[in-house]
Structures are given as structure tokens and as C-alpha cells.
């Protein structure tokens, strides 16, 4: 009984009978790759932080270079979010695939278009991919906040250029 209810709910948000495991698996793989790639930010940050310092041979220690400024956050972030476009592109393609599914093997589109709840057709094509796109955007936003917080925390105050947050929106990530 429960499994039947589960099946019916599944039919609400995906085209009935459409195999979605490949699409789902590919989405999570692409999202993971995009997240891992964005985490490269930390190594970029680290190397830029190191470049603020010079080796002071006489003290056998490291000291900060005079009047040095830190590279802007927006520059460090360049290219770090680019791979998030892949799962988003996949979701957009998934919408197209779901629409096409109703024309493949049979013309189940005729049934979908004459359901008393016409929204069911749109729902089955749009809900899951749209939620996934929102998830990707959400993850990007969280990562951006984390990166910003780490940057502001790690960069010595004297080296920090002003308006880092504002500068983010003047550049393409």
C-alpha cells in the first residue's frame, strides 16, 4: 500500500514510467565536481596570502612586505564557480527530455493534456529540474558566503582593500 502511494507521488513530479536514475546520478556527479572545483579557492587564497610575506634572512623568519595589498576576492574567485553551469545545463536539458518523453513510444501527451489537473503536465516536467537548479544556486550562494567570510578573516587588515563585497557584483564569477 505504502509503495503504491510512493509510486503515485513519484508520478506527480516526474513523467510516469520515465527512467530518471541516469539523470539523477549525472546531476549529483556534476554538482560534486563543481563543488570540489570551487574549493580550489582555498589553495588560491593560500598562495596569495603567502605572496604578502617575504623571507627575512637575518631573522630567519617571514615578514610582511611593506605596503603590500591583497588581491581582491573577486579575482581569487574567478573561474571557481564556472563548473556549476554544468548541473544547471543538465537540469535545463532534463526539462526538454521530460517534455519529449511524452512523445516517445506513444502519444501520452494526449493523456497529459486532457487531465482534469492540467498543471500535472507542467509539474512533471518542471518541478524536479527547477528544484535542482535552485539547489545549485543555493549551494553557490552558501559557498560564496563561506569564501567571503574566510577571505575577510584570513587577510591581514592592513592588506585588505575596501569594498570587497561590492566588487563581487561588478565582475563575472
Amino acid at each position: 500500500m505504502k509503495s503504491n502511494e510512493g509510486k503515485q507521488k513519484k508520478h506527480l513530479y516526474a513523467p510516469p514510467g520515465m527512467s530518471l536514475w541516469r539523470e539523477r546520478a549525472l546531476f549529483w556527479v556534476l554538482l560534486t565536481v563543481a563543488i570540489l572545483h570551487s574549493l580550489e579557492f582555498f589553495s588560491t587564497l593560500q598562495s596569495h596570502l603567502q605572496s604578502l610575506y617575504e623571507r627575512l634572512e637575518q631573522y630567519e623568519n617571514w615578514g610582511m612586505i611593506n605596503r603590500v595589498t591583497m588581491t581582491d576576492l573577486v579575482v581569487l574567485l574567478r573561474g571557481k564557480f564556472v563548473l556549476f553551469g554544468m548541473p544547471i545545463l543538465l537540469c535545463l536539458m532534463a526539462i526538454g527530455n521530460r517534455y519529449r518523453y511524452y512523445h516517445q513510444g506513444s502519444k501520452s501527451i494526449y493523456l497529459m493534456r486532457r487531465l482534469p489537473d492540467r498543471r500535472q503536465w507542467y509539474r512533471s516536467c518542471l518541478v524536479q529540474p527547477t528544484l535542482r537548479i535552485l539547489l545549485v544556486i543555493g549551494i553557490m550562494a552558501v559557498l560564496l558566503l563561506v569564501f567571503y567570510a574566510v577571505y575577510m578573516n584570513q587577510v591581514p587588515e592592513g592588506c585588505l582593500l575596501p569594498n570587497q563585497w561590492q566588487k563581487l557584483w561588478r565582475w563575472n564569477l
Binding site: K7, H11, P16, G17, M18, S106, S108, Y110, R114
Partner: peptide, 27 residues
């Protein structure tokens, strides 16, 4: 209104039992 067409308007990947559930849910 219902419709039977030679182009077939059912879901080819579903079973008859699944269709019973789908129709029961929507009609």
C-alpha cells in the same frame, strides 16, 4: 471525455496496474 487513438495515449513504460493507479488518481 475519454480518447482512444491508434497512436496510443498510454505510458509505454508503465504496466496496466500502474495505469490503473494513475487513472484512479486523476479521474
Amino acid at each position: 471525455l475519454s480518447f482512444a487513438t491508434s497512436e496510443h495515449s498510454f505510458f509505454a513504460n508503465l504496466t496496466a496496474q500502474d495505469h490503473e493507479g494513475f487513472y484512479g488518481q486523476h479521474f
